[in-house]
Design a protein around this nucleic acid. Sequence first.
DNA 1: AATGAATGAGGCTTCATTCAT
DNA 2: CATGAATGAAGCCTCATTCAT
Lengths: 201, 201, 201, 201
Amino acid sequence: MPKIVDKPKRRREIAVAAMDLISKKGFERTSVREIAEVCGIAKGSVYDYFANKEDILIELVNLALETWQAAILRLKQKSASPAILIPELLVETIEQMASEIGGLFVFFGYARQEGSYAQHAELFSAITALSNETSRTFAEWLERGRHDGIFPNVSDPAADAALLISAIDGISLRHRNGLEPRDLAKGLRRFLDVFLKGLSA
Amino acid sequence: MPKIVDKPKRRREIAVAAMDLISKKGFERTSVREIAEVCGIAKGSVYDYFANKEDILIELVNLALETWQAAILRLKQKSASPAILIPELLVETIEQMASEIGGLFVFFGYARQEGSYAQHAELFSAITALSNETSRTFAEWLERGRHDGIFPNVSDPAADAALLISAIDGISLRHRNGLEPRDLAKGLRRFLDVFLKGLSA
Amino acid sequence: MPKIVDKPKRRREIAVAAMDLISKKGFERTSVREIAEVCGIAKGSVYDYFANKEDILIELVNLALETWQAAILRLKQKSASPAILIPELLVETIEQMASEIGGLFVFFGYARQEGSYAQHAELFSAITALSNETSRTFAEWLERGRHDGIFPNVSDPAADAALLISAIDGISLRHRNGLEPRDLAKGLRRFLDVFLKGLSA
Amino acid sequence: MPKIVDKPKRRREIAVAAMDLISKKGFERTSVREIAEVCGIAKGSVYDYFANKEDILIELVNLALETWQAAILRLKQKSASPAILIPELLVETIEQMASEIGGLFVFFGYARQEGSYAQHAELFSAITALSNETSRTFAEWLERGRHDGIFPNVSDPAADAALLISAIDGISLRHRNGLEPRDLAKGLRRFLDVFLKGLSA
DNA sequence: AATGAATGAGGCTTCATTCAT
DNA sequence: CATGAATGAAGCCTCATTCAT
């Protein structure tokens, strides 16, 4: 009997090892040879776990998708006030994700580039669906906050939710790129604090 | 008599034509042939204006740099109150830039990737310098606003400025990617409104 | 202006150069590097003329197709008696083809292998169509010969035509493989002589 | 107690199982994995019976060689008149072989391709020897037929024998390729009928 | 003996870059 | 100056073969 290998586990290991390279250098600039090298395996062995190079990216997007999906679910189940929910839980979630799956937004960003995932319509819609789900969740929180009198200034919950997400995206991305904020959790907490209360009040 | 060609001008024209492709498909996925094609010139002619493919990217970063530098300068010269300055002028500036140079942040993003610009330390520092200059400008405005009693909630002007920039980045990027906000100016204005006043007040 | 090259001509030149290798060693055993080598060009240059390796084979099949089509046409236009027509013209035609396009049957043979031309249904049907056309032409001659009392022994013209073609195929193939008959024309003539005499007695 | 395996027998079983794939798809297009699959064994186990992939081909050529050798021997022992011998016995023999060892001529064909059997000179000569033996046998029959006054039209027995073999080859090959004749025995019988009548008249 | 994970040579293909015209 | 044919390095991928289990 040959060496016993947990294929799905190994697959994920390779993907995670590739994640670092890809999020640092970009997908195209990262060669399969390099990925194999950091994994300590032979070039050809990568193809025992992935049909092709792009398949590695798919795995990463799926990983990001799952993680984020789980996070959203967890957040939705909490029944706390949005004023608490958003800063406390959200920050924690995002911070954890940042360390876990690294370039989440990098990989999602790929999905939006022309020529990517030509044959992965279902993945593309999965990303879009989750993106929408996220927006909707945020919008609900804002809506609830307005109803409870906590966020009287909310005008269009959906639009404000989109802005909130975009801003968080931008802050996380910049953090990932080695710029400020150095401490992501602190930065996000401060940002949400301001966004919810305002600089002027 | 040879046709007289304004080298720097033509150089810029090619770069601008390439910008759209690159910001949509990514640098690696865009071939020199394609760039030449949209410019209506021959593949080989690109090399009359650029030493190599990466040089096109350099030109684009420089263009972004210049444009942004000019915008910052223009904004700094205004002596209006930050409460006005930030929303009014900033939004206008960003919107104009978005239409002019498209993927500004995309190109800056490249500069941060490992393996890029190995030989372009000076460009890298230019970007860093401008980034810092931008942060400082924003920080000054926030500082001034705090001093004037307009932004009493500002605690660490530099940190808050970084958050502001990152958020604007994220919103612009998402707009560029075809997601919300559909109307960038409106979105930015609303965002700044909230950021400065808060959702709760 | 760059070197002026007659693309279609060069394409055919490469294909013809490849023909020799392919008919001797087989398609798979012949590498693009080798083909380029015998053409005295760089490996990559092959792809200026062919979309991919299989495309070379397509060109060869097309060449064979055209040559054979023209030959059939030429033969059909003659109104001589089949007893003359078949040996005289056919032998001449086949011999000429053998020297011109070498491994005609080798390439047609490929078309019948599973996994070949997956995306070339139209080529496959072209070959089938021409094959049928050839059979029909032979059958007509045999039919006419029977009607004229020259070939009284013909029973099923279509079936006999198929046998005739298959036999010629086999003789040509064997000649091409360096076995007997050494002199193809002489061999074919002798074969037809015997076969037709059998049909006439 | 280890499972006792009849190595030579198993070897042949694998080769026979591979034969179908190889004669349909070609040797190069058939992977060792596929061969193992149709045999219901593991890829690595193939190498317990064959030194390498080409060795499988060798086995098949040997099998074809043996079968044909035996057939020739059997035919030679019959003392019937060639006019009977050739159609009756030959057809039966060939038909049986066609069902037994499938692509006989395909495998012999490989042996003639450059680059094959570089290290198998003895195999090559075995094929050549058998080929010659076959020709000689046919030639003898024709010769005897001429001597007996049955085939007065035979001029050069060796040459005519070569044509006969080539033609049979072509007809069998075409049948194997799924083209006419659908009924090989019937086709061959008809062919020989015509060809011999031509030789006799 | 049997297995299938691992290896790596080698094939096909792309494309940035050069250069003869 | 402009062109595009030609080049060749380098990338992705396949698959015959090996070998630890």
